[in-house]
Design a protein around this nucleic acid. Structure first.
Lengths: 246, 246
DNA sequence: CGTCCCCTTGAATGAAGTCAATACGCGTGG
DNA sequence: CCACGCGTATTGACTTCATTCAAGGGGACG
């Protein structure tokens, strides 16, 4: 089972065997495991390394003084937190585990070696970073403009496609290990309303969500009611011209 | 009057005279002017260059099929659109002018020269990029968790501080050239409700907004009611240790 | 078997949206 | 200089989507 980052980056470009080896090695040193709910890094702390998710789900979140809490991103296997984060003195948000989570912690040095002299990797990591930013923008649109049904549907579409990019889906289903409270914190809705919204999606036959598993019987239909346009995920192998020849 | 990008980057690090010269020159070739409402680049187009705002305000926005429109970022003088945007094949959003807008268009080559062999500039540009991402995250929190009053107040705080970083404020005021419709599109509120919210901020004595000018008589008070914490703007000169000695 | 966490449902409330009419301010042209 | 027109701002009345409060149910695990 290859490193999920490798799988994902190959959505964008074909890596050489050497590139893959380098990434595999980087992702196998300094592996840490976190329990659900545990912070990987907290707001205010100094960022020390770039985290790469190997398995499990995590999230970024920010908390207001009065306790309100917003999840601003989900981390899935293969996801990397911001490149060059160590330029900043202190984290302005926290990262925590939603499930049991294993991450590889890439030191600044490892990371610089990774980018140095490996143009294909560098470009692929840039792509990764730009897609993450695009996702963040799309969340702004999602929360700002879509109603509850569209909002939850849109998020499910996004997560499904992102999981698919790392091979973590079956035909039309995937593991879905997070709670309705997590969905609420991510969509800016109340838990109660997320619950009602999921009911509605279920009754419309758009999703089957049970236990920790999600199925989407008719993905195009879910995309449609959610006004979901996948262009922001940039899965179109822009980097083709740089493909390794091997 | 120096290039506003230089002024802003010096919030983070002191640039050498040479660094400043390079940035000044980069910002003076390929200058274009746009009329209010005009698109600088539209969703679907191929990004060709990195845009640097010299004067005026612009925005990023995304539009849903049914016409709903969300502004996901404001561009102020000194702002740069995403580094390395040309890695992506097509824009997933549009950029347009809100006022008369002048931008310098940096070609891929200019841009690579800028980063190449100028570690202080490179680091400062990275800082710029990371701050932009942090702003995007904060907007997610703002729209997801804050009520109308907090949301509008928070946005005004952010804009004021960002303008101040490029020297575009007086003691407690600044030009504020955008419409209530723009504020509505950025906050995810209706125009009517933005209007009422501004009234409320006015009657509470927190803002004086008239014509195209904004004053904030008591900034700490506005920050407080908006639950505004400026840490995400990372104005704390992290890069001090890299300061040019001159 | 009990406890805890998560999910579910109902009823009442409330914040923000919509619709519609009116007012203001500024630039253009008579 | 004033009248017209257009974009922007303002206000009121009504509606709606989502929140809040509160209670109950179900499953996993010690």
């Amino acid at each position: 089972m290859p490193n999920p980052l490798v799988r994902k980056l190959e959505q964008f470009t074909h890596l050489s065997a050497e590139d893959r080896g380098i990434l595999e090695r980087a992702g196998s040193v300094q592996v840490r495991r976190y329990a659900p709910g545990e912070d990987v890094i907290a707001e205010g702390e100094a960022p020390r390394e770039v985290n790469l998710v190997l398995s499990g789900w995590g999230c970024r979140y920010k908390q207001l003084e009065d306790g309100r809490r917003q999840i601003t991103a989900f981390f899935l296997p293969g996801d990397l937190c911001d490149l060059n984060i160590f330029i900043l003195r202190a984290m302005d948000h926290s990262v925590s585990a939603l499930t049991t989570l294993t991450v590889a912690q890439l030191t600044r040095e490892t990371f610089e070696q990774l980018m140095d002299g490996h143009p294909r990797i560098t470009q692929a990591l840039w792509w990764e970073a730009l897609v993450n930013i695009a996702i963040q923008r799309e969340w702004t649109v999602n929360i700002g403009q879509r109603n509850a049904l569209e909002r939850v549907g849109h998020l499910l579409c996004e997560l499904f496609i992102r999981l698919r990019a790392t091979g973590l889906t079956s035909e039309n289903g995937c593991d879905f290990p997070i709670t309705q409270a997590d969905l609420a914190a991510a969509t800016g809705l109340s838990v109660v309303h997320v619950n009602r919204t999921l009911q509605e999606l279920r009754h419309a036959g758009l999703i089957v969500l049970h236990g920790k598993h999600l199925s989407i019987p008719d993905f195009p239909a879910l995309m449609k009611v959610s006004l979901f346009n996948p262009n922001y995920l940039h899965l179109d192998r822009v980097g083709r011209h740089m493909d390794a020849v091997e």
